[in-house]
Design a protein around this nucleic acid. Sequence first.
DNA 1: CTCGATCCCTGGACGC
DNA 2: TGCGTCCAGGGATCGA
Length: 296
Amino acid sequence: MPELPEVETVVRGLQKSVLGRRILSVWIGKSDFIDNPAEFARLSGQRIAAIERFGKFMLLRLANDGDSKEKTLEDATSEAASLLVHLGMTGQLAPSAAEIPFDKHTHVSLTLDDGRELRYTDARRFGRMAYLTAESLAKEVEGAGADPLEVSDAEFAERVLSRNARIKALLLDQSVFRGVGNIYADESLWRAKIHPARVGSKISVKEAETLRRVLQEILNRAIVMRGSSISDFLDANGEPGEYQRHHRAYGREGKPCYRCRTPIRRIIVAGRSSYFCPKCQPAPRQRKTQRRKSRR
DNA sequence: CTCGATCCCTGGACGC
DNA sequence: TGCGTCCAGGGATCGA
């Protein structure tokens, strides 16, 4: 499941392989995950001028330069447009030789000026693509959370301590921190010894400092290892990442904690599986609506 | 503001 | 072999 490190890995791969290429034509199969498939015709003729990550989004910045053709009004309007790609759960974006047949779940293919095709493949279609003008991109980006790799101690603490939601929910909320998903939320909470159901406002300043530090360490480490491949993540070269070997909590239900050997537990917090060590990450005092019924 | 539930979608695991 | 069922999960949305 692509989170910040996986998306960063794909972006770096694409920067090496397709940056600067011109898109010659566009093929679209299923399009229910595309905001505005009709707009994709505008991709033709544009050059991939930059490739960036924004949270879990990839942005392919387009340029209408080159081609000596006269500039039309349309060219001017679509200037500085971008192709937004969110990989969702199972999305892959990678160049491919044109001769290779489409994967069963390839839904978009962009023919490049070197003969290859940049293909988007996504079995579950939880991903998203959109052709964005500069204006719509600005709208898309406003309200986004802080970049977890850049955020200062002060801002991190402020974003956590000012909220009454659980820390797990805050870490997953893209309007709080952009790019963190289930794996790296659990891994950083384990490392910081914070229970996922702790309320943001009840986290101490010291704990928040630790959490920020370990989150950054984990994300950076995961980027170096080219992300985590749980089931189907592959980078832009079609290769899996390695960071899953370093997971300490995620996916380890019943297995001994790396610190204290207590079996890792799995509970649902914020609607997501949350893996944690019940000893190292002590549960918060139950304070909320005390209505614990026996659960069927 | 915060929560849980629901929906989207398909492959993989599991039970019979 | 082949069903049927459940689950995974990012994010949008809606009602409580």
